[in-house]
């Protein structure tokens, strides 16, 4: 099963772990992306996430298909992304994969977060502390049309 969700609620890592748990599996690998309190020397007080929800779920599903093609022994996949206001230190994304042995789930989780940053239409705005410049839309360097990606690929 693929358990995909976009939610405005706080992500519960244990809950997602339990979703992918299976008696035939000897491993669950988890990635938890959390919100940092600083950027470029500035204090981040708040983060706001938004998504193109239908397309985000579609691209998350494509990531699952890719994982299953690369690691056919994967049992369950869970990808939950939080939207709306996320206080610093809390999880913005949780990816969980179960497999009979650890190699597949470990590799798959790493691949999945890299792909998510590249392809899932979700945006994040950082709100900074007073007097440090109000807010800024972030760009993943993995996103092929981001400024940093373009700058690094100009020969």
């Amino acid at each position: 099963m693929n358990y995909l969700k976009l939610t405005f609620d706080k992500l519960e890592v244990g809950e997602i772990n339990d979703l992918v748990a299976h008696e035939s599996c000897g491993a669950i690998s988890l990635f938890v992306g959390t919100t940092r309190d600083n950027f470029d020397g500035k204090t981040v007080v708040l983060l706001e996430y938004e998504a193109y929800e239908a397309m985000a779920l579609k691209t998350m599903n494509q990531i699952c298909e890719e994982l299953r093609a690369r690691w056919p022994d994967i049992k369950h996949i869970g990808i939950h992304h939080r939207l709306g206001t996320v206080p610093v230190k809390e999880a913005s994304v949780v990816i969980a994969v179960s497999s009979p042995h650890r190699k597949s789930s470990l590799e798959a989780v790493h691949f999945a977060i890299d792909e998510l940053k590249k392809s899932v239409p979700v945006w994040k705005k950082e709100q900074y502390a007073e007097g440090e410049g109000c807010s800024e839309w972030k760009e993943n360097k993995e996103c092929s049309w981001s400024k940093s990606h373009r700058d690094n690929h100009i020969l």
Binding site: V122, W123, W137, N140, C143, W145
Partner: peptide, 10 residues
Amino acid sequence: IAVIPPIAGG
């Protein structure tokens, strides 16, 4: 048709 600025998920 959606206008898609650079994404920042994760």
